[in-house]
Design a protein around this nucleic acid. Sequence first.
DNA 1: AGCGTCACCCGGACGC
DNA 2: TGCGTCCGGGTGACGC
Length: 274
Amino acid sequence: MPELPEVDTIARALRSGKGSAPLPGRRILRFTTTWPRHVDRPSITTFRRRIKGREIQSVERRAKYLVFPLDIGTLLIHLRMSGDLFMRPPGSDADDYVHSIFHLDNGWELRFSDARKFGRIYWTQDPEDVLGDLGPEPLDDAFTIEVLKQKLLAHRRQLKPLLLDQSFLAGMGNIYVDEALYRARIHPLRQSDSLKMPEIKRLWESIRTSLIEGIRHNGASIDWVYRGGDYQNHFLVYKQEGNPCGTCGTSIQRTVVGQRGTYYCPDCQRENKP
DNA sequence: AGCGTCACCCGGACGC
DNA sequence: TGCGTCCGGGTGACGC
């Protein structure tokens, strides 16, 4: 599931055109899809009209969204579970699971592969319509320890679901939340307002370290979606059930928190109840 | 406000 | 080999 590091890696690839052609500066000639429900808003008819002939100015990332500012309006894509976005040169063979295609003015195609069809595409005049409720970017300078502290204390919630809540903090998903909590040595069920300052500092550092490490490895290639990254080979706890903890040797355990598979070290992340 | 549940999807894992 | 069933997971809607 593409999270911040995976989406960031995709944005970087589309931007630089490494191994393909850079996307910025290209115009969209037309949009074809075998899965019209990919387009969330506006209606598919209006969507086609809005993007036809538009020039893609740049490729940005906000939370797990890919953001494409156009000469008029903004195109946004959320990959959700199984989505991937890549460029293909003129005359390329069809790819498995590609349901939506942006045909570009240089003959290349921006292809949206999405095996489980959870992905969503938006066009809007004002990106805040889509991005407005998102929490802070964890890697921004504005996201300080003090900001995290204030936000944690403002809620009385289990830590893991809180960190997954995109309006609390933007960009973390199941993998990086588990990795960050493990690095911080904090139990996923801890109440957010029970954390003491040393723990908050560890959590802040761990969130950033986990995401930066993910980005450094170009994200993780999982769920059979190869993304070029290899962070899946460096997970400390995620999907490591039964393997020894790298710190203490205890078996990593899997449990369920808020309906989500959750991996942790029962020894290092011991401080259970608030 | 916080939490649980369900729906949306379908490839892959697993059981028979 | 093949068929049926279940699982997982980002997000949003809904109910308590």
